[in-house]
Each structure stands twice: as C-alpha cells, then as structure tokens.
C-alpha cells in the first residue's frame, strides 16, 4: 500500500562518520530507508545507536558524509546552511525531548515564530498560530509563558509550533522522554490523531512501549537500519 503514496524521505546508502579521539565512529553505516506521505514511523534504538545522527540528517540539521538523501524529492547534500534553514522552516516540524520553547515568549509567540521566519504577514500569522494551538487544545493558554504551563502543555505548544508551518513531516525526538507516563500517553494520542488527519510523523525513541503505538517501526543498531516486521 505504501507504493501508492509519494515518498517524503528517501535515504540511500547514507553514512556519517565522526572521529572522536582519533578513533572513527560510524554513527550511520550505509543506511537506506524510505518513508512515505501519511506514515507514522517509529525509529527505535538504544542510546549511542546513531538515532540522533539519523534524526539530525533527516531534519536537515546536518548533512551526510556519503550517500543520498531526498526530502520531498529534493536532494539535501547540495544546499548551503541558509538554504537548509529554509527547508527546515518549510518542510520539517521539530518536537524535542526538552520542549525547546523560548522562555521569554508566550505560547502564541513561540508558535508564530516559524511563520515569522517564513515571512507570513501579521493577520495570517495570527490566524495560523491560533489554529495550531486549537489543534493541540491550548488556544486558551495562548498568552501564557512556558514557565506557567505544565510539561505536557509545553510539549503540546511545541507540537503546535511544529504544525504551524504546515510541514511535510513532523520529526519528534523522544517527545515523551521528559514527561510522566500519563502525559506521555496524552502526547502520543495527539500524534496518533494528527497522523489520522494525514500528517507524516517520524518518532525517535528508545522505548519499545512508545514505539508500539506507531504503525511502522524501524530499528537502528550501531548505525545500521533494519525494518521491524509488524506483529
């Protein structure tokens, strides 16, 4: 069934090598994978398995040493830092483990920030940011600063921020890692709902329990990627 859909992420033989203390570490070793539009994929791996590297490359925060990475049909290796920033802005919505909201700004301003960098006008920006906040059920907290919100609420603001730019892909790095299990479940339910409305989600986690809620799972170990068969 995935054949009928348009691929969002296509990685072919991607490698990334770090040298730490004169020793070469293959963070990614000949990794190939394809993720299509509308999928909900979990990437599972223990710490040090190379999943952060995979996410950085997927999120265009870093470029691979070798191999090919097509995001939404665009080859990423060719772009400059500024062009990568633009691609991140338009195509990828990040959700981080530690929320990464700007503490001085209100929830609304945080959500509107990617739209500012996109150059969206004030009225349109306001409409879209409020719409995003409504999607995560926080429109009433628009004027609150992160410090005045609970962890789960902060993470939902972060999800709203990721949604505001209407990206092709939401990339979530351990989104439940800093939350208790109940709020973690809430966030996961939010991701499931978003996926049902057609948004592509890639979730990176070390927890099998969290990964189990995704429709497709990919395991990463020592920089190598392999598909996990659905039960």
């Amino acid at each position: 069934m995935s054949n009928a859909r348009r691929p969002i992420i296509e990685m072919k033989h991607v490698s990334k090598i770090y040298s730490i203390g004169g020793e070469e570490v293959r963070a990614l070793d000949d990794a190939s994978l394809t993720i299509c539009e509308g999928e909900f994929v979990a990437i599972i791996g223990p710490s040090g398995s190379g999943k952060s590297t995979l996410m950085n490359i997927m999120g265009c925060l870093d470029v691979a040493d070798s191999g090919e990475y097509l995001l939404d049909g665009q080859a990423i290796e060719k772009y400059s830092d500024d062009e990568l920033a633009k691609i991140r802005n338009r195509k990828i919505g990040f959700v981080f483990q530690s929320f990464n909201l700007l503490t001085r700004m209100t929830a609304f301003e945080n959500v509107a920030l990617p739209l500012i960098y996109q150059g969206v006008g004030t009225a349109e920006r306001k409409r879209r940011a409020m719409e995003s906040l409504a999607k995560v059920g926080l429109e009433k907290r628009a004027k609150h600063r992160p410090a005045e919100l609970s962890g789960g609420q902060q993470q939902r603001v972060a999800v709203a921020r990721a949604l505001a730019a209407q990206p092709s892909l939401i990339l979530a790095d351990e989104p439940t890692g800093n939350l208790d299990s109940r709020t973690g479940d809430e966030i996961m339910r939010l991701f499931c709902e978003l996926n049902e409305s057609g948004i592509t989600i890639v979730l990176i986690t070390h927890s099998e329990k969290v990964a189990a809620q995704a429709k497709r799972r990919i395991r990463i170990m020592d920089g190598r990627v392999e598909e996990v068969e659905a039960e």
Partner: peptide
C-alpha cells in the same frame, strides 16, 4: 546559545 539553536532549527537563517 540554546535559543539560537532553537531558532535555527525552526528555520532562522544566518541573516535573521
């Protein structure tokens, strides 16, 4: 630094 990282991750370019 962290704020700068966040801004860059969500799409702030060199110039912004």
């Amino acid at each position: 630094t962290r704020e700068i990282g966040i801004r860059k991750a969500i799409g702030a370019g060199h110039r912004s």
